[in-house]
Nucleic acid binder design. Structure first.
Lengths: 123, 123
DNA sequence: ATAACTGTATATAATAGATATATACAGTTG
DNA sequence: CAACTGTATATATCTATTATATACAGTTAT
């Protein structure tokens, strides 16, 4: 498990940990039920407080990427791909909702929006 | 010029002023070159600092809704409707850009997105 | 010209939210 | 029981947002 903290990066430590582990899960470098380093050992490695690693793990758990067994450890959860897909579909729907509102205020028809969409998708 | 400040509203005072004036311009209640109340008299009416009313006016000016003549006053600007339309079109394009990225990551085709869009627009 | 108004610029106070932490706790394992 | 696991609560620090006061400079009407 390689995690690099970049202090110049602007984004908070917990977020860097969160993203890097998430990416390793998505890319397949970490597989279902693989154990993650304990929040304390990872914190020791990175020389930060374990509360910060816990926060990263909390985020990962809230989003369904890992599961926790108290007093034992944290593990990669199943069906991440489905979960990610659902997440993205929901975001698409939110964007569409916004577009519908804006299009109405602009007097744009469905076809107008579709042609904008088609134009964007051809690149 | 009627402006109401709602302290329970959560949104900051300068933003409430900004939105209400913007809405009055959009609705046509305020017309091109109409004078706005001076930042100081409005502040007096609302019993707040004139710095706060200035901030609201600054926002309105930055977005092109009003123009200012120093030492004279602030006035409703022209071509707001075109400007608003451009703004909204740009926002639509941004949303479309996001959708394109998300759709690619989900393996959604152009037609899939269109049918989602069509579904949403029929309500 | 001067009093009363306009907007401007700079500096500052107050608050809230985000970030990172320490410490004390409770369960698991060998 | 020693050494590990994650949990819960409280706290410190910092930053961005919000609102402000004060001093300044131009315009207008008397």
């Amino acid at each position: 498990m390689n995690i690099f903290i970049d202090n110049k990066s602007g984004s908070p430590i917990y977020d860097q940990i969160y993203s890097q582990i998430k990416n390793q899960i998505i890319s397949g470098a970490l597989k279902e039920d693989d154990p993650l380093p304990s929040i304390r050992s990872l914190a020791r490695d990175l020389r930060i407080s374990f509360i910060t690693t816990k926060r990263a793990y909390d985020e990962l758990e809230k989003e369904g990427f890992i599961y926790t067994i108290p007093a034992k450890g944290c593990y990669v959860a199943q069906k991440n791909i489905e979960l990610l897909r659902e997440e993205k579909l929901q975001k698409i729907e939110e964007h569409i909702g916004e577009i519908v509102k804006l299009a109405a205020a602009c007097n744009l028809s469905r076809d107008d929006v579709i042609s904008m969409l088609t134009f964007e998708m051809e690149e």
